[in-house]
Design a protein around this nucleic acid. Structure first.
Lengths: 155, 155
DNA sequence: CCCATTTAGTTGTGAGCGCAACTATTGTGA
DNA sequence: TCACAATAGTTGCGCTCACAACTAAATGGG
């Protein structure tokens, strides 16, 4: 890499180690977690997140736009993700009676059963891939670090 | 979430805080870094990584399979990523004289200039989104944590 | 009260990438 | 040496998702 630009504040050893360890790990980690869920429960991590959020919502239903904001998806991305869940019977769509523009995503009993079956396996996967590799101190440091990063991103 | 399964070792508060802070941040962070690079240099983070690795390789060229392994891409994924870089003139393909099965990805002078132009801007982006939010201590903890996680993944 | 603006969601299109199937080349054991 | 296995890379296909354009409904200022 060229070092001719004296203005550039290149990363030092500590900074580089943090950055490289992070960026080279997250891809594998996400892939492992998604694979675990696909193999054990035939669902993606994205679908799992939808089911979790719906199960925690009042009446197990949510407005699409709230769901999209929560999951960091664009409206179109959420529409397509819901399409898959509707087709397999885990979710249904209902038009809101208060505002007929909004579609409510509703968790079906079948979807709830699928989530209840998946949750223990997913937690085991998260432990195996992530939690078990960290000490309690590391977890606390990590939470503080990522909370700080996220706050910076939302400026 | 159902708690009827007594066997399941659910996450405690510290574990949950670490997991949630991590999983809800990385998507935004990756998106921000990619957007920065698209806007300032008209390239993706994936393309940037290819150019960096080629620039660090002997004769600025690498076997496709080595590149794929390094970037955690499947062969087909790498073929398509290279297609884009070849089309824009940053990379060319050469058949290896030693093994005619292998294609060498070669960084062109134009590709090298593009990388040299992009690097300071990308480093600034990484600082702004990631490094600047962390203390030196946090960086050291984070490097240790992710190194540990990555070692676990490669078992 | 009505038309312009805003908001919710869907659809067309295209990018990125994994999987499976395929070709081409090299290595290997009988 | 020759058939079979292993390896390198590409292509067809499907999935996920972002962007832009669109429809429909609600809102708000004149």
């Amino acid at each position: 890499m060229s070092r001719t630009d004296e203005k550039t504040n290149w990363l030092n050893k500590t900074e580089m180690a943090a950055w490289i360890s992070f960026i080279e790990t997250i891809g594998d980690l996400q892939y492992s977690l998604d694979s675990d869920l696909r193999e054990s429960c035939d669902m993606t991590f994205g679908d799992y997140q939808v089911l979790v959020y719906l199960s925690e919502s009042p009446d197990r239903r949510t407005r699409m736009c709230d769901l999209a904001a929560r999951l960091n998806l664009t409206p179109s991305g959420l529409t397509r993700r819901l399409d898959g869940l509707v087709k397999e019977g885990s979710v249904t769509r209902e038009v809101s009676t208060e505002d007929r523009r909004v579609q409510l995503a509703v968790l079906t009993p079948q979807g709830h059963r699928k989530l209840v079956a998946a949750a223990p396996l997913h937690v085991a996967s998260v432990r195996h891939r992530f939690i078990d590799r960290l000490t309690t101190e590391q977890m606390k440091h990590l939470a503080a670090a990522f909370t700080s990063i996220r706050e910076g991103l939302s400026e």
